[in-house]
Design a protein around this nucleic acid. Structure first.
Lengths: 347, 347
DNA sequence: GTGCTTCGCTTAATCGTTTAAGCAACTGCA
DNA sequence: TGCAGTTGCTTAAACGATTAAGCGAAGCAC
């Protein structure tokens, strides 16, 4: 019934060559004492037979599955592709597989998802936490990717610095009144980004923050953001805390006849897939996901190799903040002098 | 060295209760002959100790890992979140974990990714193939999710029918000249969608197709699509084959002062994350990913359970096409009579 | 009461790998 | 020659689960 694996195993190689399984194992892993000649013969024969070690056998013996878990709790997060891709790449390079667990946005489901991963015997996991959830002690090393201000964060993009880049960019273009557009004021990431923008403002500049979820709670989902009115009040730059909000702002402004970047500028965060192809293409700030993933995975792998005891621990990395990179495109331009003052309110 | 798993195992439960491991195994799986009373005692004790079966041990013995592979070769595909989420959910419901393998868009890497999954001992895999690649015989059951016209396709959204829905919708609004905007003319999915649109046109209607990749090959990446000129030629509806292209069309039109939907209509495909929140919100066609994933996974699981021999086979499902659902939003409206004829060319 | 079946549990083998321990044979040194 | 140390391989015991086979005891029929 239990279909035997098709490929050859150690013992097949061993009998076929007239040696013991232990020798084959040693030869392939390079661990024990085997003569160079025999190592060569064994390796050649293994390759010829297309030998693939059984992860199950190895996992059972070593207590290590060679698999990392990836928990992505935010439903349909547009960053998902980049994160998953980067983590998979880094893990794969380190010889690990990646088991995904999505909790469909549900907070209790996050714990369930983590448990499923643990039951499957992952050696560690990378968690991109939902909002401000604490990771309850899973029984394996955990790396958290969120933002520096999240307690227990392992590594993340330097959202604060990204915000300062945006502020500096807009300041350099002559903007004085900036409307920050965020989605959720409880998000650590968005708060850090907004904080960075505010910290980067120069004397004489002011900002205001619009949280979409709050607005939608009053006015209904998908409502107008009322950006035309804000432009009338003298705001010349709209700094969204994510490209998704930037896109929403951009299209709303365009629809109401306000030209970007001639009349006002719009910026985003994350360099999501559509940012280069919309018109005008979006000025944004990109996170170096590959580096972040590599740091997270190697911190995890280090901890796995070092600790014999399989305790659940939040791992730490040397580099906690990875710089973000400003990508200047068409959606940001010099401040329109006509809108610099508040005279437009009366138009 | 090999850290022993923290939790209790069968033998711990067995000795603790003074019975044999086999009995414990039988009691928990409900397979052998064990008295009801003892089953109850064993289950209770296992639960109390927080027993979690070792997947490694089970996998080794049964030859089944309880893990499915998910191969998503298109780099940063915006559908990734929905697909991964749906597959993970369906697999999880069927008691399987999901191991991801992204091949970063590289075609040879697709084979590598598949091999990595096989080496990790997946019981089967779901492949969303890149372009028109054939899946070379992996040594496990494979379900392909692409489109009906792809050879070996297991299940997919009915892209053709989706196209017809769009055509019918636009026809009903009085549009007569439709510009189909696709990205890649080698994509089976996009061809089916375009074919469906053309098949759905009514007498007196005509369509033209614009492939962005071709245009970009001449004019450069991120170039204008020249939709204003097309509008001048009498096209009143722009039917993109993906929401990404729809977004590109929408923003280009808005930027050039053409109002959507007052002057022209724009539609997309896939109901991607931004579609409801842009202004105007996008009329699109949504695929039922949950159903598709469920069909793919259950076809896979059926095949896994039935076949003792672990051959590589493309599995088939009863339902090959899952209907798509038209989502009418703001970006499509009645055809503007002023643009119906070709008089605008001279304006 | 004898023989047969069924019940309820145990024994033991097995999956494929790793790795500690053991054991010849050989080397080097006195 | 004798003894220690090294080399090169083998033996065997795990890891944790599943499952076929075995085996007393009890139930049942004649």
């Amino acid at each position: 019934m239990a279909s035997q694996r098709p490929g050859p195993n150690l013992s097949r190689i061993a009998t076929s060559l007239g040696v013991s399984v232990a020798t084959v194992s040693n030869a392939l892993s390079g661990k024990g004492r085997v003569s160079d000649a025999l190592i060569e013969r064994i390796r050649a024969h293994a390759a010829e037979l297309g030998y693939v070690p059984s992860q199950a056998g190895r996992a059972l013996r070593t207590g290590r599955s060679g698999v990392l878990g990836l928990v992505l709790p935010d439903i349909a997060n547009p960053l998902f592709p980049k994160i998953a891709q980067a983590i998979e790449y880094a893990a794969s390079a380190a010889g690990y597989g990646v088991l995904i667990a999505d909790s469909r946005g549900d907070i209790t489901a996050q714990t369930e998802a983590i448990n499923r991963l643990v039951e499957r015997g992952v050696d560690g996991m990378v968690v991109v936490p939902r909002r401000a959830t604490r990771i309850s002690g899973a029984s394996c090393p955990v790396a958290v990717i969120d933002t520096a201000s999240t307690p227990g964060n392992t590594v993340a993009a330097d959202h604060w610095q990204g915000g300062k880049e945006i502020a500096a960019h807009l300041a350099g273009l002559g903007h004085r009144q900036i409307l920050i557009i965020g989605n959720n004021h409880e998000s650590n990431v968005q708060n850090d980004r907004a904080g960075g923008i505010r910290a980067g403002l120069q004397p004489g500049m002011r900002s205001e923050t619009l949280w979409i979820e709050r607005l939608e709670a009053e006015t209904g989902v998908g409502c107008r953001l009322g950006l035309a009115e804000k432009a009338g009040q003298g705001f010349t730059a709209f700094a969204a805390l994510s490209d998704l909000q930037a896109l929403r702002a951009l299209t709303e402004l365009q629809q109401e006849g306000i030209s970007v970047p001639a009349d006002v500028s719009v910026t985003g965060f994350d360099d999501l897939i559509w940012s280069p192809v919309v018109t005008p293409s979006l000025t944004t700030v990109r996170m170096d996901m590959d580096t972040i993933a590599e740091i997270a995975v190697s911190a995890l792998v280090d901890r796995i190799n070092e600790s014999g005891t399989r305790e659940g621990v939040l791992v730490t990395a040397e580099t906690e903040r990875v710089p973000m990179q400003l990508i200047v495109r068409q959606s940001s331009g010099p401040a329109n002098p006509a809108q610099k003052t508040s005279e437009m309110e009366n138009m």
